[in-house]
């Protein structure tokens, strides 16, 4: 069963079986632009969505999107199969670039100057495929099932780009408390989302 992150990509036309992600990376290393195009078609939307969530500005999100795929193309970022799957790697690159921008003083100055984005300023998304919608609901439900404090710790770390120490200062909580909340939240999410991540394997329990 394919990676749930792959289900987000547009449905391919025709009956041709699509190459796996690592094959696309191999083609990109050889300079085949079609590999880059396919990879972008699969994950460009998700990368942009993540970037926009973090930086809150469509122009900056576009910079993150372009930077992410160009760094994959020119070899600035190399994929290590031992550290996970291609979409996880892509999301990691995009998140790091977005957080770098988020932390930059230029970005903070721009946000201070701009009005909050009005609703409806984005191009309307195409209706989700059924399985992508189900996946999104599953992730939303899993997050909403967390205690507020745990969800807050996750969101401040992942989307806010804050370190554990910064979160502790932000919330006025001990660092150890923040670390525990984060770990407990990730354990609960792991248990809830594992059928999406590894549907063929039983969910891990406790400490592995």
């Amino acid at each position: 069963m394919p990676d749930p992150l792959q289900r987000v990509r547009p449905v391919a036309s025709g009956d041709r079986q699509e190459p796996p992600d690592v094959e696309l990376l191999r083609r990109m290393r050889l300079g085949e632009e079609h590999g880059l195009e396919l990879l972008y078609a699969r994950y460009g939307g998700l990368v942009f969505t993540l970037a926009l969530r973090i930086v809150g500005d469509p122009e900056l999100a576009r910079e993150v999107l372009q930077d992410t795929f160009l760094r994959c193309w020119d070899g600035s970022e190399s994929f290590d199969p031992g550290r996970g799957r291609v979409p996880w790697w892509l999301m990691g690159i995009a998140r790091n670039r977005a957080v770098d921008l988020l932390r930059s003083r230029l970005h903070q100055a721009r946000l201070r100057e701009r009005e909050p984005l009005a609703a409806g300023t984005h191009e309307a998304a195409q209706p989700d495929a059924t399985d992508a919608l189900a996946t999104r609901r599953a992730v939303i439900n899993a997050l909403q099932g967390l205690p507020v404090a745990q969800r807050q710790a996750i969101e401040l770390a992942y989307y806010g780009g804050l370190s554990q120490s910064e979160i502790a200062r932000e919330l006025g909580a001990p660092l150890g408390t923040i670390k525990s909340r984060t770990r407990e939240a990730m354990d609960r999410l792991r248990a809830l989302l594992w059928p999406l991540i590894e549907p063929q394997r039983e969910a891990p329990d406790g400490r592995d």
């Binding site: 749930p4 939307g45 993540l50 799957r85 191009e123 998304a125 996946t135 992942y158 999406l196 991540i197």
Partner: peptide
């Protein structure tokens, strides 16, 4: 690796926004 996989699924819970 398991935690990385969990982190990578978080963006799937966002309302998708197509890139320009």
């Amino acid at each position: 690796e398991q935690y990385r996989a969990v982190a990578a699924t978080l963006p799937l819970g966002l309302d998708p926004v197509p890139p320009p």
